[in-house]
């Protein structure tokens, strides 16, 4: 299970590789639902990669007395939390590792495509089995942890600490058919010092005031594109005066994309919807909406056709696989 591969995920070598313990694993309700949906809709067992971030949260135990040793006292109350933001499902088992559980980093790269998120671990979903890690799952978690690392995000103390991609999610279904209890999931952390998968509590983060605290340490991963409106109003000019040539070029490019969507209708034309001329111009807007709807409809039928083709191809693949499995009999 030992690896001789260098760290492939992080561009910087790990500075501190303590076997830190996670306090818990957080996942948004939507991501978890999507994960369960993917597992339950697949024809058989599947595995895949999970992405996210790991950050250090300092719990607030502030006091008026100056601490004697500020570093020691602050680190003692730190909590390290892993947050799952997305995942990718391989659609089969033994996808990015061999039957012994040795992870192949090239297969990981081809599976994650160019996901910008950081790899924090992996998941395994299997039906009608015990909800504890299998022999191979332990080996994969160990191999993955030894090959992939990511930095621990720490706002207060930005010194770089790395942590292994040690998160493991196990999704199972109960071995007897039940009406109510149909799915089980558990979160684990692989601890390299103990060579063991330790269960971790899974916190489900939802939107709402009660969960606001969870977003405090979060940095947005995908910024909105800079949508700069080309309005002739002078009030807007002040805001966008500064900016380099590159930013301007980017803005022009974005504008072109928006214009293509708007079917030649300029944003400035919207002005004409107000006032005396409005009645004459609504036709143009309606025209644009109709064109857009037609586009959406053709897109929908394209999607329908292509998913049918995907389904047919999958059926064909299954037949071929079954034929291969029967060969030699």
């Amino acid at each position: 299970m030992t690896s001789h591969f260098p760290s492939l995920c992080s561009s910087r070598p790990p500075l501190a590789m303590d076997d830190l313990s996670l306090e818990k694993i957080e996942i948004s309700g939507a991501t978890l639902a999507s994960l369960i949906q993917r597992a339950s809709s697949s024809p058989s067992d599947v595995d895949g990669l999970i992405f996210g971030q790991i950050h250090r949260i300092v719990s607030s135990n502030l006091s008026d007395d100056p601490p004697a040793d500020s570093l020691a006292s602050s680190s003692s109350s730190d909590q390290i939390v892993a947050t799952v933001t997305s995942f990718v499902c391989s659609g089969k088992t033994v996808s990015f590792y061999d039957p012994l559980g040795r992870v192949d980093s090239r297969r990981i790269d081809s599976l994650r495509v160019d996901s910008p998120d950081r790899l924090i671990g992996w998941f395994s979903a299997r039906r009608k089995t015990a909800n504890r890690p299998s022999m191979r799952e332990l080996a994969v978690a160990s191999s993955l942890s030894s090959q992939f690392h990511l930095p621990v995000e720490d706002l207060k103390n930005p010194k770089l600490t790395n942590m292994a991609s040690c998160v493991f999610f196990l999704l199972t279904t109960p071995s007897s058919d039940q009406c109510i209890h149909t799915h089980e999931y558990r979160g684990y952390q692989f601890r390299s010092s103990k060579q063991r998968l330790e269960p971790r509590s899974v916190g489900i983060v939802n939107i709402g005031p009660a969960f606001r605290g969870h977003y405090g340490s979060f940095r947005p991963k995908s910024g909105f594109p800079p949508l700069i409106c080309e309005l002739d109003s002078s009030a807007m000019i002040v805001d966008r005066d500064e900016g380099s040539l590159g930013a301007k070029k980017q803005a022009v490019k974005d504008q072109k994309e928006i214009d293509a969507l708007a079917e030649g209708l300029q944003v400035g034309d919207l002005k004409r919807l107000v006032g005396a001329e409005a009645a004459n111009n609504t036709g143009g807007i309606e025209d644009m909406y109709e064109k857009m709807l037609a586009k959406v409809q053709s897109l929908a039928s394209d999607v329908e056709k292509s998913s049918d083709r995907v389904f047919q191809q999958e059926k064909h693949n299954r037949k071929l696989r079954n034929r291969i499995a029967r060969m030699g009999r």
């Binding site: 033994v94 039957p99 022999m135």
Partner: peptide
Amino acid sequence: IYNSEYSIDAPDFVFGPDDE
């Protein structure tokens, strides 16, 4: 645990709850 969809793959094993 075999995978009938990929029955050419090696099986996986889950041992007893006391034998982690």
